[in-house]
């Protein structure tokens, strides 16, 4: 039997929208049902614990403007009050808001590199809920309607993911199952 009484904790998580200055590079943290748009090439944007939720990143490599959305559910019709209070909770109103905010911050739509991660599913969901896959489906529909292409995505499965967008060069990393991989550029 092994014990780990002194196993260190990870740093306390900064609150959503705060800058994590303890990290090697300043990070803007996007919470669950939250979005952030940043125009500062020294920073990264990160979101933790993407399960069935999906993280969407947009990045303009010329303006060095980037944004990230962490939405929970596909459609805002499920809870109109929450949708009004926090549009970032839902894909159908959160994704357009992300694009609006990043363009307001100086990005150009035609230059945007769009990526996504998350959309995991609980085991043996017999089709009743499938929140992860319905999140993935609505994202594809939104991009189809907007005539946008996903540059890269890492979705599905059962594991939780941490998604990071580095604004200096647009590199997107995913940490899952104890491993870090680069999602973009391929």
């Amino acid at each position: 039997m092994s014990r780990s009484p002194s196993l260190p904790f990870k740093n306390d998580p900064p609150r959503a929208g705060e800058i994590d200055r303890g990290a090697a590079r300043d990070k803007v943290v996007v919470g669950v049902a939250d979005l952030a748009v940043v125009r500062d090439a020294t920073k990264s944007i990160v979101t933790y614990a993407l399960g069935s939720c999906i993280g969407v990143t947009v990045y303009d490599p010329v303006a060095k403007v980037g944004g990230m959305l962490h939405f929970m559910l596909p459609e805002s019709t499920v809870n109109a009050e929450k949708a009004l209070a926090n549009p970032a909770m839902f894909a159908d109103i959160g994704v357009p808001l992300l694009f609006q905010k990043v363009i307001e911050a100086g990005a150009r739509r035609e230059r945007l590199i769009v990526c996504a991660a998350g959309g995991a599913e609980v085991l043996a969901d017999d089709g009743h809920f499938r929140i992860g896959s319905r999140n993935r489906t609505i994202l594809r529909k939104i991009f189809w309607k907007q005539n946008l292409l996903l540059a890269a995505d890492d979705t599905g499965g059962q594991h939780s993911r941490t998604l990071t967008l580095r604004l200096a060069d647009g590199v997107i990393n995913i940490r899952a199952q104890g491993k870090e991989t680069q999602l973009w550029p391929h």
Partner: peptide, 14 residues
Amino acid sequence: RWAGLGLGCDGLLY
């Protein structure tokens, strides 16, 4: 779990 609470390396393996 669907709200993203308490998700560690066990993820959605339930």
